[in-house]
């Protein structure tokens, strides 16, 4: 039972505490390049999810047989295989979106977040933990993609998932769907994330102080 709860923890940490984008600042390139609309962000998130979970599974299952010296190249080849699978399946099922994402689907190979998880986690843990960790990290990545994608689409085109939000009088803020908007939005989101973390830290410190005070009072009274 306790084993299950730690595996669950491994999954949860990717969502917020160790979020790959907001905390570790990994995988920025696909993050910024495909998030000019929410639907692109979702497809990219699903593709990354599949690649990360698949390669974490393989790497952790075969970790005894992977020699230390060539591990990085092997990881890359495993990742590249999964990306090829994703690339061809997307081409077959969603050709329009595949065309929009263009070169960025093959570029999942060099998403440093995926290689980072193999090196830092999957190669040292059992299959179960590695898969849970991959699911959490990929979901965290997807949340970040979606957050960025929706902000940019709402501000830049006045719509979300293609649905018009503001009516005809809305003047789209075009810069948000262009490259500079990506940098600015991600910068501001990171700023917001820092602010929340900082506030939480202050809150925890304050609670600890109050507890100490009341404990002292209790001991004085006693």
């Amino acid at each position: 039972m306790s084993n299950d709860s730690t595996a669950y923890d491994e999954m949860l940490k990717g969502l917020w505490r160790d979020n790959p984008v907001f905390v570790q600042v990994l995988g920025m390139c696909p993050m910024l390049a495909v998030t000019n609309s929410a639907i692109n962000a979702v497809v990219m998130g699903i593709a990354t999810f599949f690649v990360l979970v698949g390669s974490s599974f393989l790497v952790s299952a075969f970790k005894q047989w992977i020699p230390k010296q060539v591990r990085i190249s092997l990881y890359i080849v495993i990742i590249a295989t999964f990306v090829t699978v994703v690339d061809y399946s997307l081409l077959a099922t969603l050709p329009a979106i595949h065309k929009q994402l263009g070169a960025f689907i093959p570029l999942i190979v060099v998403n440093c977040m995926i290689l980072g998880r193999q090196e830092a986690f999957a190669s040292k843990n059992t299959v179960k933990f590695a898969v849970m960790d991959a699911v959490g990290m990929a979901s965290g990545f997807m949340i970040a993609l979606l957050a960025l994608g929706s902000v940019r689409e709402i501000l830049g085109s006045g719509s979300i998932f293609g649905f018009d939000l503001f009516g005809a009088n809305f003047e789209p803020w075009v810069i948000m769907v262009l490259p500079p908007g990506g940098f600015l939005t991600l910068g501001l989101l990171l700023l917001f994330f820092n602010w929340v973390t900082e506030r939480r830290k202050q809150f925890i410190v304050k609670v600890a102080e109050l507890e100490q005070l009341s404990a002292e009072e209790a001991s004085n009274n006693g």
Binding site: V25, P180, G187, L191, N194
Partner: peptide
Amino acid sequence: LIRGTAFNLIIAGILSM
């Protein structure tokens, strides 16, 4: 609070513009 990646990203945004 701004120092670090957030600051660099905003600079990059202005450069990109």
